[in-house]
C-alpha cells in the first residue's frame, strides 16, 4: 500500500510494482466475478418466482386475449382482436365499468375526507383514550374481508338481521332488503367497504399529520390564530401533497373490491353490484362454458386502466415531492 503512494521509489522497487499490480487486479477480478455470481444467486428466487407468477402472466394474458379458449384443458384458437370487439360491444361490460366507477365515487371521498376529520381529532394529544379509539377504528382492516362479506349478509338480513332490529328499535319499520334490492345494494356495499378499510386511510392521515412540526402550531397560536385559522392556514397547506398521494392510493384500493363483493352480493341482485373483477371472474370461472379468451381481453382492458391510474399515482408522488421540497 505505502509503496504505491511513494512517488520516487528505490531502484529495486519498480520491478516489484508491475508484478504486484496485475496480481492484485486479477484477484480483484476474481473477487468481482465471485461477487457478481453471489448477486445473481441472491436474485434468483425473485427472478424465478416473480417471473413465473407476475411477469409471465402479464405477457400471457395479452396472448390469451387473442384466442378463443373454452376451458383450461381445451385448446386455443387464434381469433385476432375479436375478443376485444366482443367485450367492447357487451353492454354488461360497460355496466360493470360504470358500477366500478360509481363504487369508487361513493367510497373514495367518504374514506378520504371523513378519515381526515377523524385523524385530526385523534392526533390531538389532549384527547383522552385516543389510543383505544385508534385501535377500534383500525380493527376492521385486519379482519378477513371474505369472512366479513359473509357475515354482512346476515347483519343486513331483512327478517332477523341485527341491522333491521336496530332500525326497528328506533321505530323505523322499513323492512328494506339492503343487500337484496338492486336499488340499495351498491350503496350498502360501499358503506360496508368504507367501514372495512377506513382505518387504512386514517393511518395514512395520522402519518401525514405527524410531519407537521408542532412549532408551527405554537407560532400560529402566539400570532393569535384560532383552531380554524390554524387548520386553514397551517395544517391544510402542509397536507395538500399528502392529499394527492392518499387519494390515488385510496382510489386504486377501491378497484380491488372482489373479496367483499363476491362474498356479500356475488355481483347481484340482477348484476347491480357486478364490478369488473366479478365480470371477469364470471366469464372465466363460473360460466357453464368458460370464455377464457374473452375474460382475458376484459382483464387486459381493465389492467391497462388500473395501470393508467398507477401512472397517475407516480405523477402525484413526483408533484408531492416537489411540493414538499419547495416548502422546506
Amino acid at each position: 500500500m505505502a509503496r504505491t503512494i511513494t512517488p520516487a521509489p528505490a531502484a529495486g522497487a519498480p520491478s516489484a510494482a508491475p508484478v504486484a499490480a496485475p496480481r492484485a487486479a486479477r484477484r480483484r477480478g476474481v473477487d468481482t466475478r465471485r461477487q457478481t455470481l453471489w448477486v445473481w444467486a441472491f436474485l434468483t428466487p425473485t427472478i424465478v418466482l416473480y417471473g413465473l407468477y407476475t411477469l409471465y402472466p402479464i405477457v400471457a394474458s395479452y396472448w390469451y386475449s387473442l384466442v378463443e379458449w373454452n376451458g383450461f384443458s381445451s385448446g386455443q384458437r387464434f381469433v385476432g382482436i375479436s375478443n376485444y370487439r366482443a367485450v367492447l360491444a357487451d353492454p354488461a361490460f360497460w355496466a360493470s365499468v360504470k358500477i366500478t366507477l360509481v363504487f369508487t365515487l361513493l367510497v373514495a371521498p367518504a374514506r378520504i375526507l371523513l378519515s381526515l376529520l377523524l385523524a385530526m381529532v385523534l392526533n390531538s394529544p389532549r384527547l383522552p383514550l385516543r389510543n383505544l379509539f385508534r385501535t377500534v377504528y383500525f380493527l376492521p382492516v385486519v379482519t378477513t374481508t371474505a369472512i366479513v362479506g359473509v357475515v354482512m349478509q346476515f347483519v343486513f338480513d331483512p327478517a332477523s338481521g341485527p341491522f333491521t332490529a336496530f332500525l326497528k328499535a328506533f321505530g323505523a319499520d322499513v323492512g328494506i332488503d339492503f343487500l337484496g334490492d338492486s336499488g340499495t345494494a351498491l350503496v350498502t356495499a360501499a358503506a360496508v367497504y368504507v367501514w372495512k378499510f377506513f382505518g387504512i386511510t386514517m393511518v395514512y392521515w395520522l402519518a401525514a399529520l405527524q410531519t407537521v412540526p408542532t412549532e408551527l402550531y405554537e407560532a400560529a397560536r402566539i400570532d393569535g390564530a384560532g383552531s380554524f385559522g390554524i387548520f386553514r392556514y397551517v395544517t391544510l397547506p402542509l397536507l395538500v401533497p399528502f392529499l394527492l398521494i392518499i387519494t390515488v392510493l385510496t382510489v386504486e384500493d377501491t378497484f380491488h373490491a372482489f373479496d367483499l363483493m363476491q362474498t356479500m352480493t356475488g355481483g347481484g341482485p340482477f348484476f347491480s353490484t357486478e364490478i369488473i373483477e366479478i365480470y371477469i371472474y364470471r366469464w372465466a370461472f363460473s360460466a357453464s362454458i368458460p370464455q377464457l379468451g374473452f375474460a382475458s381481453a376484459a382483464a387486459v382492458l381493465f389492467g391497462l386502466f388500473v395501470m393508467a391510474v398507477g401512472a397517475l399515482q407516480a405523477w402525484a408522488l413526483v408533484v408531492a415531492r416537489r411540493g414538499r421540497k419547495a416548502l422546506s
Binding site: 407476475t54 402472466p57 402479464i58 394474458s61 390469451y64 383450461f72 382483464a299 407516480a314
Partner: peptide, 19 residues
Amino acid sequence: ATLFVPTGYTIIPIVKLSM
C-alpha cells in the same frame, strides 16, 4: 414498472401455468 400491476387480473395465466 410492475409495482402498479393489479394481481387479480393475472389469475387466468396463473391457473393455466399451475395446471
